[in-house]
Design a protein around this nucleic acid. Structure first.
Length: 584
DNA sequence: CTAGGGTTAG
């Protein structure tokens, strides 16, 4: 049109500018800007709005600001402010967005829902929670919180600022919850790892007659992956088939991840293989799955295949391959990838990569090298880095270095009880009673109490959670009876060693209570009888040796298969054979 | 000018 000599007017500019915005064509956009100036219509509210939006979408946010500043105040309508506010937000300019909103209010320009929808998402980090809460108050004052979009937006803001609790309070206060409201809360819980809350909400949502869509199911699947809730995951897959969603990369990645983490590698592979377009996220999920289940060599092969397919690995992909190497004892490969990461792929390793490397070297017994690596780190080591060294010191019974690692880790995470327990266990193996007492004293002084471990079992579409010594479950009586029967039976038929029985009595007397994984196993046996071949138990701590023995003997006795997943790895118990391939 | 999504050890 321009070439033909015709000049655009106030009605045609917005359309043309919108195309520049969506295609990110800043040069063409700037040319249109020049034409608008010539035509003298750049201060027409809709032209102005489109210009701001165009520059903002082209990441030229300062140019957007200039256009706005050159416009006389009388022409700055709400829509113009809205365009610039959302421009600042999408370019992550927190203080600019907030101060423009303040200016707008001071100038007496009224904010509407769209203003808030453009502004609220600028609060996306925990430090923004205070401002986000203020914005929530503004919405209430302006009567905009009744707008369902604004409510959903606020809900997501609380999630991004790290307060799922505030999000939940808001969620409960929303009387007309739409699909998006449910999805925002479900994925909020999923992103923060509150997996059992996700499954509870999912059930509730369905009972309210809301039909889940693919966004819902992505959140549910990632929670199934965290919990190892394979059967619920399968139900979700059936739901996908029933609903007839077309194959969607988000959903496929979530499925691959779910199957992989539940140990169903063949199924994970089938979904992965059938994916029309595999992204680095898909590869990371499948590599992590093989690595987690002791198939380190396969994981490394897949990483190579990914490189050959021309996919650039990112930080997460390196975490999955490095941890696979660590679990499988592939020390040299791990070192090779770690070096390639910086030199060949120009990725700055973060603390999470160093903690994998310290774990890798530490497990291989190269404690000094692990320590040297920490000293050469260019980023600040976090608790996980020193914690990995501490874990390695326990394996290799190096008390002296354990003390050093403990000192460092406790500066960073003074209330993480796991590390006190790790040091105490290191002392225990070295028969260092003084050390154990010192740790206990420290914990008492700091008023730290070991939090109860917990285990989950999924049964009939629900996740049943047990704490150590738990008596809250409706079937408590039967569960304990079953457990006693099992242990008596094991005692008579398997010469259970004396120390196990002593520790068991100790457990009951001292009130620390029966280990949660034993309760979960007893519950599962009680409810599934001979049906169902596999039970998945997940624990947030490590499986201790006694429980290992218990589960191994039970699985042999009843000829059942168990997979126990703890904080660090999966343990497979099949008819009495305990295969912990990644304990090397 | 406008609310919801997948991958990361210990």
């Amino acid at each position: 049109m321009l070439r033909s000599g015709a000049s655009p007017n106030a009605f045609t500019f917005p359309f043309a500018l919108k195309s520049c915005a969506s295609l990110s064509l800043p040069a063409a956009g700037a040319q249109l800007h020049a034409h608008a100036l010539k035509a003298g219509c750049e201060v027409e509210p809709f032209v102005l709005t489109s210009l701001i939006s165009m520059y903002a979408h082209c990441s030229l946010i300062d140019d957007a600001g200039k256009v706005f500043d050159h416009c006389p105040q009388s022409r700055r309508l709400t829509v113009c402010y809205n365009a610039l506010v959302s421009g600042y937000t999408s370019n992550s300019r927190f203080s600019d967005a907030v101060s423009l909103f303040r200016r707008m209010t001071e100038m007496g320009v009224s904010a509407n829902s769209v203003t808030m929808l453009g502004l609220i998402p600028v609060c996306s980090l925990p430090v923004h929670l205070g401002v986000g809460t203020c914005l929530h108050c503004c919405c209430v004052k302006l009567g905009l919180d009744r707008d369902s979009s604004v409510g959903n937006c606020l809900l997501t803001m609380y999630v991004k600022c790290g307060s799922v609790e505030d999000a939940r309070v808001l969620f409960d206060s929303i009387s007309c919850k739409g699909l998006i409201t449910w999805n925002a809360m479900i994925s909020g819980y999923a992103q923060h790892g509150h997996a059992s809350h996700v499954l509870d909400l999912y059930r509730e949502m369905k009972s309210c007659g809301i039909r889940p869509d693919s966004v819902t199911l992505v959140g549910v699947l990632s929670s199934c992956a965290l919990l190892g809730a394979y059967h619920i995951g399968c139900q979700v897959e059936r739901q996908i088939e029933l609903s007839g969603f077309n194959s969607n990369p988000f959903l496929d990645n979530a499925l691959v991840n779910m199957y992989a983490r539940c140990g169903k590698l063949a199924k994970a592979w089938a979904v992965f293989d059938a994916m029309p377009e595999k992204t680095v996220v898909s590869w990371t999920a499948i590599i992590g799955g093989y690595g987690m289940h002791g198939q380190g060599k396969l994981a490394v092969n897949l990483f190579e295949q990914m490189l050959q397919a021309g996919i650039r690995p990112d930080g997460a992909a390196f975490v999955s391959v490095l941890s696979a190497c660590s679990h499988a004892g592939l020390t040299d490969e791990g070192l090779k990838y770690f070096n390639a990461m910086e030199k060949k792929f120009l990725l700055q390793p973060g603390p999470e990569h160093y903690s994998c490397m310290v774990d890798l070297l530490g497990r291989a017994g190269q404690l000094q090298k692990a320590l040297d690596l920490i000293h050469t780190m260019r980023v600040h080591p976090d608790g996980a880095v020193w914690g990995a060294l501490l874990g390695a010191c326990k394996i290799h019974k190096n008390v002296e270095l354990a003390e050093l690692a403990f000192e460092r880790v406790i500066e960073l995470e003074p209330t993480n009880i796991g590390y006190y327990v790790l040091l105490s266990n290191t002392y225990n193996e070295a028969n260092n009673m003084d050390g154990i007492l010192r740790v206990r004293m420290m914990m008492r002084e700091r008023k730290l109490k070991k939090e109860p471990g917990c285990s989950y079992v999924e049964h009939t579409g629900k996740v049943h959670l047990f704490l150590a010594g738990d008596r809250c479950h409706p079937q408590t009586k039967e569960i304990y009876r079953m457990l006693n029967e099992l242990e008596d039976w094991l005692k008579e038929n398997h010469n259970l060693d004396k120390s196990y029985l002593e520790r068991r009595d100790d457990e009951r007397l001292s009130g620390t209570g029966v280990h949660s994984e034993k309760l979960a196993i007893a519950f599962a046996l009680l409810n599934t009888k001979q049906h169902g071949r596999e039970i998945v138990v997940i624990k947030n701590l490590r499986v201790c040796e006694d429980c290992h023995l218990f589960i191994k003997l039970v699985s042999k006795a009843v000829d059942r298969q168990f997979v126990v997943r703890d904080a660090t790895r999966f343990h497979h118990f099949e008819g009495g054979v305990c295969s912990c391939r990644d304990y090397w």
